[in-house]
Each structure stands twice: as C-alpha cells, then as structure tokens.
Design a protein around this nucleic acid. Sequence first.
DNA 1: ATCGGTACCTGCACGC
DNA 2: TGCGTGCAGGTACCGA
Length: 267
Amino acid sequence: MPELPEVENVVRSVAAHLAGRRIISTRFTSRFVTPGNRAKLTQRLAGRRIESVRRRGKFILIALDQGTLTVHLGMTGKLLLEKALTPGQAGEHTHGVFHLDDGMLLYHDPRQFGRIEFSEGAPPRVARLGPEPLEISFEEFRARLRRKARIKALLLNQTFLAGLGNIYADESLFAAGIHPLTIASKLTDTRAKKLYDAIQGILTQAIQLGGSSISDYVNAQGERGWFQMEHRVYGREGEPCANCGRPIGKILVAQRGTHYCAACQKK
DNA sequence: ATCGGTACCTGCACGC
DNA sequence: TGCGTGCAGGTACCGA
C-alpha cells in the first residue's frame, strides 16, 4: 500500500501531533518489524523527545532529541494515533506501541514487512536512496535513465528514484505512453520528458487526494485516500483502456504484476 | 556495477 | 465446507 503519496499523507497526519511529544514508554512484539535487541530499543526510546517527523522516499524519519527513529511501512504497515490516554487493548497485528506524554501511537502490520529502527546518526538504509521524484531536475532524471534495465524495474528501484512503487510506476508509464518493458536507455528525450512530467503530475495529484486506498490504507487519523478513483491501469486488468477502449493487460515484470495498455504504451 | 530471481510473512480470493 | 494455490502497496540478498 504505502508508496510516496501514502507515506507523505501519514507524515502529514501525524507530524503536528508528535512534534514536541515525549516518549514515556514503548513496547515491541515482532522480531521481524523490530529486528535485533528489542529491550535495548525500548530502553533507548524511553524519555526521548520527538523533534520532528518527515518523509524521505517511503521512509518516515522521526527526529529525536537523541538519535533518529526510522519507520518503513512495508506492504501493510500503518501508524495510528490513539488519542486515548489509557493503553488500549493491542490488536493481533499491533507490533509497536508508543506511549506518549499526550496520547498513544500504534504500529500495525499484518505481514510484518515493515521496520522500526533506531540509529544514532543518519539511518543507513536511507543513505542509499536515490533522489526525491518531486525534487529531481529533468536533466538529472534524464542522465539516470542511461541504463539497460527495463523501465518498470528501474522505477521500482529505490536507488534510482525514492518513493515510487507498483501502483505509481504503472500509472506513470501509462500516462507517458511507455511500455513497461522498454529499455530505459532507449527512451528518447521527448519520451523521457513525458515520463518525468507524468511521475510528478501523478504523485502530486495522489498526495492531494490522500493517496490510494486500494485495500485498507488509511493515514494516522484513520482517513482513506481517493486516488484509486484515478487509477487508469493499476487493478484494471481486462477493463477498457480510458484512451483506446482496448482491454488493459497484465504481465509480470521484476516479479511484480504490471498493468498496461498494449496499444497505447509502446517500446 | 547491474540485473533478475528468490525469500521474508500473513490474509484473502478463487477453483475444485 | 474445506483445502491448496497464487497473489498482494516492499526490500534485502544472492548468484550470474
């Protein structure tokens, strides 16, 4: 679920509530979400003050008065604010509980692909990320396309651009009229510019609409997104293409379901 | 250095 | 009804 627009909305829905809060205590129950020594993590977080919350790629960076807490939502992770001052009954898939000086923050993640990690300095996983798609210049974007990988795979590669996932990669390629199996280095300047514009336009609109709630995505206040109404190919296999009316196809690229229109998207 | 395939974990839809 | 299979918003890691 959570790609750049969803993570951005989670951050926006949580930032004002968390800034300035103090962490009283925490509890973590998954060896996958919180790998390593969980008792040590709990110990390091106790008493810390939250300075700010921001997004980098699909990562949520929570700056503390000492160190940084990095949260990645994986496929099914959610951060949820609980205004109740008393600890609620943790659900089956609640793997993180942050008891704050004002309210509570829960981490919920059925598949446990998400991660909650503490680091003293800059988190190492974040250091490897490519540029932000909404900040990169066209010139740099063009230069980074000089690779032989298939464009869909490249868009999913977080060291190429940070934040695109399966939904927005498919939607961007459709909007740009580019076949997902196109070799990136073979894109002309004109088509590269179309893709650049498509990525920025789609991400911007998706952020404004609160992200895509295709299954159960909600922000930290429990609010759904509406960009799924704007999807043209993702999840629309067999439906008529909005452009030409031919059925939307689905293939496997980089082990991911890839939705596209064979007539409108050319290699 | 790059690329593609596999593994990680749980829930759900689908076909028999 | 019940069970096996495949698939799902993501990323790390391995071998080629």
